[in-house]
């Protein structure tokens, strides 16, 4: 299983895709980071006098992590699309299914491999707020809570993408489907906000809704549980799908 994860990660870095994704998302987020920083420097003198005014963490770190979540939403379908769909198109899946591995082993290996990749991306993003420590004081606990949120978000993105990738042999279809589903889950709470009180449960489905408190440094068990449930559910679905293929051909 870990072998599979390692191989997955290694093959990812053999393709230019991984490097391009890392470089471009880093550049994009660096630009956003700098503009937030710039804005904060401008208004710092004005808000310094107000008691209880937002500090560096609220003004720079939280928006940055929020933006990182959007970027991850955009790129994770690109990472997960190839996981199983490409294996199927190259007809290399039998290599894994005829090895002494269970379907769960295959799915977990693929999951961990992609998770490790996005973890690298996340760590590189986190270096930016940490660099603020050189000249300022930031709320490390709030940063940690935001990072945890991103971590959970990544896990559920990959699980969803992995499942959709298991359904098709066209990576492009997997990518589009994953992106649509992620985006839908992201914005589904808009309906809940539009005044209909009976639509509140839609808000509970939203990936975004559970991320926002974490960004503000509020750690609720229900939010963490939500992400874990999403991740586990889609991983189980992917395992079922692979197993089913063996049974029905």
């Amino acid at each position: 299983m870990l072998n599979l994860a390692r191989n997955e990660l290694y093959r990812l870095f053999l393709s230019p895709l991984a490097w391009v994704i890392l470089a471009l998302s880093q550049a994009l987020l660096a630009y956003l980071f700098l503009s937030h920083l710039d804005y904060f420097m401008q208004i710092q003198s004005q808000i310094a006098a107000i008691p209880g005014a937002p500090g560096v963490t609220e003004m720079i770190v939280a928006p940055l992590l929020g933006n990182a979540a959007i970027v991850l939403l955009l790129i994770s379908p690109l990472i997960t699309m190839r996981l199983l769909a490409e294996e199927r198109r190259n007809e290399s899946l039998p290599l894994l299914t005829s090895a002494p591995l269970t379907a769960a082993g295959v799915v977990m290996g693929k999951f961990l491999g992609s998770f490790a990749f996005l973890l690298i991306l996340l760590l590189m993003v986190l270096l930016m707020p940490l660099s603020l420590l050189l000249g300022s004081h930031i709320d490390l606990m709030q940063l940690a809570s935001g990072a945890l949120g991103l971590l959970l978000l990544i896990a559920s993105f990959i699980a969803i993408g992995l499942f959709l990738s298991s359904l098709t042999r066209q990576p492009a279809i997997a990518a589009v489907a994953t992106f649509s589903l992620l985006f839908f889950l992201w914005i589904v709470d808009w309906a809940g906000q539009s005044g209909h009180n009976d639509a509140g449960w839609l808000g509970w489905l939203s990936l975004l809704k559970h991320f926002e408190p974490l960004l503000q440094g509020e750690l609720y068990t229900s939010d963490v549980a939500y992400y874990l449930i999403v991740t586990v559910t889609f991983l189980l679905l992917a395992i079922r799908k692979l197993d089913n293929e063996r049974l029905t051909g």
Binding site: R11, L14, S15, N90, E91, S92, L93, P94, L95
Partner: peptide, 11 residues
């Protein structure tokens, strides 16, 4: 097992 199409990672 070697299937009809050899399962290889080309990269």
């Amino acid at each position: 097992y070697l299937p009809e199409t050899p399962p290889l990672y080309r990269e």
